[in-house]
Design a protein around this nucleic acid. Structure first.
Lengths: 384, 384
DNA sequence: TCAGTTATTGAGACCGGTCTCAATGCGTAT
DNA sequence: ATACGCATTGAGACCGGTCTCAATAACTGA
């Protein structure tokens, strides 16, 4: 009788426990309805969490029967993997950090498109950040990306003379590839246009057309408002162009080539000032090189406003084949920077590094040929 | 003797196990050297992990003495927080997913800049993806973003007639804001230009100038190569423009307004075909509206190649005030879409939703006024 | 059928942080 | 000195997945 009672009590207790367990399970599932886990799928498929994870994560082995059961349960439950959890476990994220000057600048947005396409093809995704060509902001963005534990970073460094933050990232095991600019001392691959060759080519072309006084216009600002030392320039792309420009100007007999470098052109107001200075220059400047397409567009508009005719009054070349260079009359001659390819190459390098490639650091130079259009003409037609 | 031998064997085995364990521990610490954890900092500061986390995570309370000790240890060790772990715990990431048609299109890159600036100001970062205005790719990108557990998404939907994937995201608790396009049935805020009003304004202006046969050129493709039903258009921005265009054309006495909608202009080749068709149109088409700046640039170039003069032969208006519209001669009249503001507004809406705002869904309409420039002129100067 | 080998599965620890609540410490009043 | 209330701290569970290795199952050959 006593034994029978105890037996009944044990059964009731067992039933109550099963009831509570089921109830808790129901509540849990209800509140977590929006996020099904591997454990949920495993329960539904009547396998262990580890087995379900193997199937859903696509690693290890599982029998076909098990695989089907898990797959079906996952579909039925609407399982969606959690990359955060996966990344925590594996120590690897599928995220790539990108630091550009300004995503709105077509030069960078096209490069980002190239990076993005190559990344997506490799199952990776981009976190895009803007440095605004400001070192402090670049540092902050790199820190943000490091906290996100990006698998690697592609950076257009604002100033190659101060890359401590990039060195720290690299030391932490995060591979870095720079694009458009190269820091020689950094243990990072780089992908850049051949700026020196391009500047040289443009200058030769202009000299062949009889030009001697050629101006170079840049956004970079110099101490005392005038270039006196190339080391002032933290963006290697710009430095290389100007170095080649100076060499070529000397070759053409210019005694003070640095005096032909016009600085600090950021936006249309400063372009107006520079255009006034160029038009007032003695001896007359008969050709202008714009360091990038933003500057190019501002200068072009300012010159047109003053009634300058291309190429009869002034020959004009801009870096980067932006959309606007092809609707002007005449069309603008450009240094064609294939930034989509820059981006693709940079991403390919980075994927190699992420996958453990420890071969020698590469500095990839991509040709950036001049496209001569109607904005360049012989000096004799340039009025004197 | 046998017992002695077994005893020695057991001791050797034990020693070997301890040796291997020590060796593994050393290797492990060495490989983890680059990632200092809260536990490491806690150890160095002689507090518990929970306390160190409180200080480093900036939540809870800690004495000043403790705070200083932890902060100092963290600096000395070079602690860098792990957002993955934090997000796992908190159930919240600081990532925002963005799906645009093509980051390279200035319309989107400027919007993304607006989104990015607003996000960064709120301590958030963007994962940018491209849909290429393809529904399948959009679905895939949304899935990728959901797997990353983004805190919310800003999407320019490719087709508002099929938004199951967005509905699923919203049901999962991930707020969505659409921009440029609106899906009425979606429980999502939207930020768009007032396309109907803009089209109406442009048409009124053209009619006031005497134009009657005005063409609208779009990238959208229609069944049978001709627009017959507005519901064919999955992008609401385009649909609204065309609807207003048709209404205004009818008002101006056009009997078959749909015949003035030219479709499927993607790239410069198709632009050539469309330009030929427009120039051959009877009665003569005296004004053209380009649905976006990519189409606009292609059309402009094709017309110029055929010697068309603006505005004497043809008046021309393009949606979006792209850079190229301001260097043509004459400058192009545009519908100014302030996409930077679109992006900012969208991000603000999304931040509200992420923070728990459950107020009524908002559809924000931003004015997109016409900027009349030299490409528009009276019909009488347009040759007949 | 039994033994040996290979394939599959499950238990439990772990990633690096957050969160909860009980334990401990500190300050104040009697 | 003792009691009470408040502030601070620590222990341990947990987030959702991966990884390791022992246990179990399945297969094959004698």
């Amino acid at each position: 009788m006593r034994i029978l009672f105890l037996n009944i009590l044990i059964r009731v207790n067992h039933f109550a426990k099963e009831f509570v367990k089921r109830d808790i399970g129901t509540v849990k599932m209800s509140s977590k309805k929006t996020s099904i886990t591997v454990a949920d799928v495993a329960r539904a498929a009547k396998v262990s969490k580890a087995t379900a994870a193997r199937v859903l994560g696509g690693y290890g082995v599982a029998s076909e029967k098990t695989r089907n059961a898990v797959t079906e349960a996952a579909e039925k439950l609407g399982y969606r993997s959690n990359e955060l959890a996966r990344s925590m476990s594996t120590g690897r994220t599928g995220l790539i950090g990108v630091v550009v000057g300004d995503i709105e600048n077509a030069f960078f947005s096209r490069a980002v498109r190239g990076i993005s396409d190559a990344a997506n093809a490799a199952g990776l995704n981009l976190i895009i950040t803007n440095s605004n060509e400001d070192l402090e902001q670049e540092r902050e963005m790199v820190a943000v990306l490091m906290r996100q534990r990006v698998a690697g970073m592609i950076v257009a460094p604002t100033d190659v003379r101060d890359t401590v933050h990039l060195e720290a990232a690299i030391s932490s095991g995060t591979p870095v590839v720079t694009f458009d600019r190269v820091a020689d001392h950094l243990v990072a691959d780089s992908v850049c246009g051949d700026d020196a060759a391009a500047a040289d080519q443009v200058m030769r072309h202009l000299h062949d057309l009889g030009h001697q006084n050629v101006a170079y216009v840049t956004a970079a600002g110099f101490q005392g408002g005038r270039l006196s030392d190339l080391d002032e320039i933290g963006i290697t792309a710009v430095r290389n162009r100007i170095a080649a420009f100076l060499t070529a100007s000397e070759r053409a007999g210019i005694e003070d080539p640095m005096g032909l470098v016009f600085q600090n052109v950021i936006g249309e107001e400063s372009a107006q000032d520079i255009v006034a200075a160029i038009l007032a220059h003695e001896p007359a400047i008969t050709a202008v090189l714009a360091s990038d397409s933003l500057i190019g567009a501002s200068l072009y508009k300012a010159f047109k406003e003053r009634g300058v005719r291309f190429p009869s009054d002034l020959s004009f070349v801009s870096w980067f084949d932006a959309d606007w260079t092809k609707v002007t009359a005449p069309q603008i001659s450009v240094v064609d920077q294939p930034t989509y390819e820059f981006g693709q190459k940079a991403m390919q390098c980075l994927i190699g590094r992420i996958n453990g490639d420890s071969s020698k650091i590469e500095h990839i130079l991509i040709p950036t040929p001049m496209i001569a259009r109607g904005s360049i003409g012989p000096r004799e037609t340039c009025g004197d």
